[in-house]
Amino acid sequence: MYPFTFIKAPTESAALAAGAQGGKYIAGGTTLVDLMRETVERPGKVVDITALPYREIESGPSALRVGALVRMADLAAHPVVRSRFPVISQALELSASAQLRNMATIGGNIMQRPRCLYFRDVTAACNRRAPGTGCAAIGGENRGHAVLGTSDQCVATHPSDLAVALVALDAVVLLRSRDGDRRIPVAEFIRRPGTTPDKEHDLRPGELIVGIEVPGGAHTARSGYLKVRDRQSYEFALASAAVALDIRDGVIRDARVAVGGVATVPWRLSDVERLLIGKAPGAELWAAASAHAADGAKPLHGNGFKVELAKRTVERQLASIGGAA
């Protein structure tokens, strides 16, 4: 770990001031401390934001609003989230471990950095960590890497399960800086690697995430998250699917489908959604729609199985949310 100074910001304005001077925010610390130990992150100044007030979960008729410092465990267990946004509860409860979920925050969760083995090893080439050094994963061990949204600069998957659910539900990130407030859809906030894999998100220097907002709708209650991985628990996804369906009178009125574990960002499947909307639910439809879940995939030598796995994961989750009949 590189030496750093540490302050605990007593107020929002103190935090924003420290952030504007280049301070690195720390919330639960479950991502940042690991990366500092590996010397992947070397902040000179760490600003603890846990004294700030962003701890509310407000569920209004039109939207769910969650403070950035709400713990993963608390959001997952919230009764309204459980009943009206089960995909969020499930994505959280299938993440990490109970101990981590008790520490980690929602803001930190969507800001978490890739689990790519080369990204986390400072002696390896990595364009995301050290732009211009190359990508060791493309020709290396890449069983866990992305097949969608990749570039010749970076193929790391986005690790957050929650973010997959949020992208499926059109959630928005609420940001604040000394220049004012901004609202950005999670899907735009988290960026594909392209030619600048080091620009992971649209957070400006010194800006704070104060919360997220999830629009409600008829689809959110009938939703769920499926996570597929080698180990039964405590592992990042090899493939995952967030699905929300609004089915009335035997017809799918609205459909939200996103996949995780297979793409460089939480990956919304708009084509699949289009194939579902207006149709009657059933096994054939699930198979036909999910066949497009990996359209455009570019498999690497170690992760070709993810193309088929993504389709099957989506198909399974459509069946379990929409009914197999």
């Binding site: 689990r115 083995l117 180990r231 039964q232 628990s233």
Partner: peptide
Amino acid sequence: VNANMADYLVPVH
């Protein structure tokens, strides 16, 4: 490349 307990998988409960 998986020299850590998150990526080298051992059984959990």
